[in-house]
Design a protein around this nucleic acid. Sequence first.
DNA 1: AATGAATGAGGCTTCATTCAT
DNA 2: AATGAATGAAGCCTCATTCAT
Lengths: 201, 201, 201, 201
Amino acid sequence: MNEKFFDLKKEKQDRMINGAMKVFALNGFARASTDEMVKEAGVSKGLWFHYFDNKIGLYTFVVDYAIKYVNMEMSAGFSAESNDFFDTTLAIEKVKMSVRRSYPYVPLFLTSLDKETNEEALEAVGEYIALYRERIRSIYEQVDRSEFAPFVDERIFDMTVAFTMKGILEEEYAKETFDERSYMGRVKVFLNQMKEMSKVQ
Amino acid sequence: MNEKFFDLKKEKQDRMINGAMKVFALNGFARASTDEMVKEAGVSKGLWFHYFDNKIGLYTFVVDYAIKYVNMEMSAGFSAESNDFFDTTLAIEKVKMSVRRSYPYVPLFLTSLDKETNEEALEAVGEYIALYRERIRSIYEQVDRSEFAPFVDERIFDMTVAFTMKGILEEEYAKETFDERSYMGRVKVFLNQMKEMSKVQ
Amino acid sequence: MNEKFFDLKKEKQDRMINGAMKVFALNGFARASTDEMVKEAGVSKGLWFHYFDNKIGLYTFVVDYAIKYVNMEMSAGFSAESNDFFDTTLAIEKVKMSVRRSYPYVPLFLTSLDKETNEEALEAVGEYIALYRERIRSIYEQVDRSEFAPFVDERIFDMTVAFTMKGILEEEYAKETFDERSYMGRVKVFLNQMKEMSKVQ
Amino acid sequence: MNEKFFDLKKEKQDRMINGAMKVFALNGFARASTDEMVKEAGVSKGLWFHYFDNKIGLYTFVVDYAIKYVNMEMSAGFSAESNDFFDTTLAIEKVKMSVRRSYPYVPLFLTSLDKETNEEALEAVGEYIALYRERIRSIYEQVDRSEFAPFVDERIFDMTVAFTMKGILEEEYAKETFDERSYMGRVKVFLNQMKEMSKVQ
DNA sequence: AATGAATGAGGCTTCATTCAT
DNA sequence: AATGAATGAAGCCTCATTCAT
């Protein structure tokens, strides 16, 4: 990419980033249309390719940017009241929602990365994603699971939570407009039930 | 479509069906390429359009076929040893795996329908899918949940199971080759844990 | 072509010939669709190519056939009551109409040859057409023009008649169904006026 | 269509318009190939669809353009020295020839519209053509026919002139290159003869 | 910096023609 | 003799990318 991108007015940068994320998130790499991004961002087609060599370059940039931003917000705003599993999970979701206020499609975009099947895209972006996953993993490493019943296998449990929350997120984004309250409500109800089910009784 | 399709040698029919399912499942309707299907099936491009009027016609056919086949296998082979929730769920997965032996991409293809965003495709196929979902729902209606602890909300529980199993399936299909043993192993372990967690203790 | 074509039942031969003529006449060589001919004639696609090597071979055959048939009918049925220009012209039209009863599209088909722009088609068929035109010309050579006013140039006059009658024919074929009475009526009225205008007064 | 088309260099606009007209005029709507137009005009295939949504949109535009241009030239340059039928007809032909110097295929293209059979094309373009025909008709309404002999039926006479001149035009266009002098020569000779034949003697 | 005109490969579909039965 | 399944080149159109301004 062309580093001069960052000399643009912040507002224009963000319009471009949001346009790209939205279209990538909703369509995946291969089906994402540059024309649609152009319309979404209100910027000329030529400009995209002035700053980003090609579609894959843009994709790489946007993935990187999204992850960096989430990491930043985590470092800054992350504050699980405790290191309880559920508090932690909820805190991560709160971070996502806060990111969403600046970059509305980051949560869906990150989630969409799992679905990506285009080999070129995966090649270019695999490492970034691994880093992000590692970050999340490391947070969970420090989580206190002492209240979990002995029959609860950590990996299965985490997988269950991850897949389900991803499902809820996608369903909420599939609605006309994303409703943060509705989303967080469903997440809390879900986590509560998982808490009840997992604890020693 | 041209009904003469069914006069073709079964093996050729299946090559075409499998080719179409694979490419649709992996790419979604809009991005699925007829050229790729043609290569997968080892037939000429012209032949597709000899039997199927157009892409949407082919899609409709394949969705219909997949669902009919699963329904058939369910009617024939479905045998939950009991009407226990977990036995039932496992029995459904066994049906999917048995279908998979004839049509390797049916399970992923059915799952992929949830992601479909193309309006034309949804229009054409919405009804079939609704029927399939209704069938699944009606099975779960007769399930015995008496052993569930009182704090287990049925809808949240089912959603959790559904999203997680979909996640496992997609992960397994993302591997080089789908390994039925690996998949069923993970499913069983998951369901066992959910059983432990949900029952009165 | 394969001469065994003539061993087919006459009725089938004619169905094929008429189908081809109709589609060629209405669409020109290049745009004429074999599928349409197949439907028109109720004969399988393979059969066309069994008897005629390719589209151009079929075209050649049909042009040849149409011209031969018209020539035959002329030799047989042609009987201008006199060698007056207008009687002769009318007699030719009567021949066309009689041909039309066996091969409904022959008159339009012959006319359509003038519009043909496809080089390959013209190449293949130019000679036949020249023969036909020569035949017509030779008939007119023997026509008595003694009643024409001196200012009437033979070539211009003939051209005027030819173009106008072609125009009338095409207009009549453009109607839902060709109405012989309507056509002959218009022709007679036209010729009468030309007669009035051309004679010494 | 994309109105930006008119911002292109006039020369390029005209190359595209002429390419389209030529191919449409010679082949009719359905058989006209965009590839051929592209080659004629020396521009890329993509560009056509940048300016014109699709083939029918291009066709509509070109018909409209041709008619507008002829109308304009008529308003500007039309000057029958008298309202005599033959002077008027000749004046119209002069207008066509003047248009031809900028857009060589307009006269043939307009003539070809009568042959058009494609329903979609007729639907899109019927109104424009009707307007053009009405314009021509209204000119002839004011023509003085007082010198016509009483046996001359106006409608038959006009039809004769129209069909014959169309025939001459098509013959001239069928030659290697259109020769204006040859064309106008034939037209004049033809009209003179018609004049002689139609007047009271 | 910014635009959008311009390109051409690739996508879906049609159609003349071939071939197995 | 007869069928129609099968092929692939060509048709219309889209879209990522380049380039002149």
